[in-house]
């Protein structure tokens, strides 16, 4: 069982009305955006289970879109997400699918973000109290658990030898005084060996130049910082 912080009980600080349908949805949106690493022009949301049936009442749609625009779960602009997205030129679409349309958790969404160069698909579930789980990234099965408003995470894509590749990265983080509170690596064989590691760096902060520096390390494909999203 994972560590339980006081602030898992006393939190997250969020815009209502539902911790799993609003705060959790927002966090899934944030992660999709961080993985996409740019402003999308098109955002499609496929909703499963109770996300599909009650998404309007719980503002799940606004929260997802707000997450994609990098808003925090407590951002007062969240209720106006649609207007803001229109201003930013992000087209969005919500496609509710039938209950039991998949074997996913009841609160699940598939987010597909696109611009003219690339696209990404992220499947995430909101598993209660603002906790979320990312189950697929570009159809590669992963298992990342995160908590809305708690962990400041970074995601790292790299080739198949986590020990060799990540060691210099950890060294670099230690040099910057960034403590690592938890790590998780998932490897998938798909064409070539690819792995994804998530690090939890509680309350610490990576600047853009630090992210770029980490990306230059050998064997690292990309580094995505979710820190700004949480601040």
């Amino acid at each position: 069982m994972m560590l339980i912080s006081i602030f898992d009980v006393a939190g997250p600080i969020m815009v209502g009305p539902s911790s799993s349908h609003t705060a959790g949805a927002c966090k899934i949106g944030q992660i999709a955006r961080a993985l996409f690493n740019g402003t999308p022009t098109q955002a499609d949301f496929y909703l499963y289970g109770s996300f599909a049936t009650v998404y309007q009442g719980h503002a799940t749609d606004k929260a997802l879109l707000a997450g994609v625009m990098k808003f925090q779960t407590s951002d007062p602009r969240l209720p106006k997400a649609f207007e803001i997205a229109q201003k930013k030129g992000i087209k969005y679409k919500f496609i509710p699918l039938k209950i039991n349309a998949s074997e996913h958790h009841p609160n699940t969404v598939r987010i597909i973000l696109k611009n003219k160069n690339r696209s990404i698909s992220v499947v995430g579930s909101s598993i209660g109290g603002g906790k979320i789980k990312i189950t697929f990234i570009n159809d590669v099965p992963v298992d990342l658990e995160m908590i809305a408003g708690r962990f400041f995470s970074i995601l790292i894509g790299h080739d198949s030898k986590p020990e060799n590749v990540l060691h210099p990265l950890y060294g670099q983080l230690v040099d910057w005084d960034i403590p690592i509170h938890g790590k998780q690596t998932i490897c998938a064989v798909r064409g070539k060996h690819r792995c994804l590691t998530a690090l939890n760096i509680e309350d610490s902060y990576l600047t853009l130049s630090q992210v770029l520096m980490l990306e230059k390390l050998p064997g690292i494909e990309f580094v995505r910082s979710l820190t700004k999203l949480n601040k």
Partner: peptide, 14 residues
């Protein structure tokens, strides 16, 4: 919470 204001989910929003 129901008006989409900012609250603390303690333990949950409901």
């Amino acid at each position: 919470n129901a008006r989409m204001g900012r609250i603390v989910a303690f333990p949950t929003a409901g």
